[in-house]
């Protein structure tokens, strides 16, 4: 169910944000837009299947702890 909600949200954005924008935007803008949308979609779909990607907070906390010896 969650996967469907995520896909519907992306579909909605595709129709109402991407398509109107596509007509008067450069190729570069469309590529950057598409790549970042696909990346976030992948992470969200993985999340809906219960697969969590690595946590940046863990990395930041470990780095700060190592640097400052907390």
């Amino acid at each position: 169910m969650l996967t469907i909600i995520v896909l519907l949200t992306y579909f909605y954005i595709f129709i109402f944000d991407f398509l109107p924008m596509k007509k008067n935007r450069s190729k570069k803008e469309i590529i950057i837009y598409s790549v970042s949308m696909i990346l976030s979609l992948t992470v969200l779909i993985l999340y809906t299947f219960g697969i969590k990607t690595s946590q940046p907070t863990d990395f930041i906390a470990k780095t700060v702890d190592a640097l400052l010896g907390i």
């Binding site: 954005i13 944000d17 924008m21 935007r25 837009y33 970042s36 990346l39 907070t57």
Partner: peptide
Amino acid sequence: FNVKKYNVFMAPTTFTIIALSLNLY
């Protein structure tokens, strides 16, 4: 990326923020 109008990237940025926030903690 030397793009003049930043509003093009608002939707991708918002989704990136959501994707990151779910995996932040």
